[in-house]
Amino acid sequence: MKIYVESRDFKKNLSFGGKTVRQLMKELGLSSENFVLSRNGEIVLEDEALKDGDKVKLFPVISGG
């Protein structure tokens, strides 16, 4: 399935073979602990299932100075 992922440092469309947000984060090489996650504008936990065309946004926890 195709997933659009957006964060502070990148925006990309990717082909994703997994099922959940947790697997997506693993594929991106990122830790869920460091982000608050939303799917199609709604905050989700990492066990949320994804479907084709979903937009995932990552809000970094660490920012500022």
């Binding site: 502070r8 602990e33 608050v36 939303s38 905050i43 920012s63 100075g65």
Partner: peptide
């Protein structure tokens, strides 16, 4: 906790900058 500040901001539509200080 810092993570909960982010969550509260997102849930309440508080638009903030997430730029990191280059010196941090």
């Amino acid at each position: 906790p810092e993570r909960e500040d982010v969550l509260y901001a997102v849930l309440h539509d508080i638009k903030y900058t997430d730029a990191e200080c280059p010196y941090s």
